[in-house]
Design a protein around this nucleic acid. Structure first.
Lengths: 112, 112
DNA sequence: TCATCGTTTGGCAATATAGCCAAATTATAG
DNA sequence: CTATAATTTGGCTATATTGCCAAACGATGA
């Protein structure tokens, strides 16, 4: 009967699952990848060139996105192409920008 | 003239800013807090009781959310009340759930 | 088969994050 | 002023994340 929602049991599991997805998006390179994949599929080599990090690093970022369920991979020849799996994550960007604007608009002593 | 977008300069700065906001949401307790604040303002003690962690831990989570621009705090008496600053982040949950459903629906060898 | 290209994996070192306790801070009550 | 309650801050340890290199893997072509 208690209306008090607590961070335990079912609720805790759900929050942990959500956090895993959010974590996958909580990195500059991975956000860039998602943004780039919104324009179509890309191979690892293309993304590596754009990001400017080691291929192995980019590959691990992509593996993490895949494990989170955000992208799909398809091997064709020697190359592996990645594409978005759930397009709605692109809607995140608009809201994140809104947050950044809100902060920069009232950037007085908000950082302390 | 180059159409090639690279993760450097302006683009890199923007992705880093976005990542900072996403990072703030990439934790079970902080997701729980955001979810709870969607129903109205809450004081630190209420949230601490619900989360079941040390008060100092919850306080640090809240400070992180505030620094990211996601919540606002207001001191009234001895208590500090927190509330959402940018409501659109609540839309994230629907998409995250869609990702989780997508994964659980096709949970065959998707995790390897 | 051998060499090469594209990608992934293992492993390591550097950095970042999380959570607790103790102490400091601020407001209120007596 | 003293005591107490609510919150924040400092500091410490444990854990997680990141990124590079080297090596392994898989497909292609000579």
């Amino acid at each position: 009967m208690s209306e008090k929602k607590k961070l335990k049991g079912q609720t805790k599991v759900r929050m942990e699952e959500r956090a895993r997805v959010m974590k996958a998006l909580a990195h500059p390179s991975r956000l860039f990848i998602v943004d780039e994949l919104s324009h179509g599929e890309r191979c690892v080599c293309e993304l590596t060139d754009m990001i400017g990090a080691d291929v192995s690093t980019v590959s691990k970022h992509l593996a993490l996105l895949r494990q989170a369920g955000l992208v799909l991979d398809e091997k064709r020849g020697q190359q592996v192409f990645y594409r978005l799996r759930v397009p709605c994550i692109l809607n995140f960007f608009g809201c994140v920008e809104a947050v950044l604007e809100e902060v920069s608009r009232c950037d007085v002593a908000e950082s302390s």
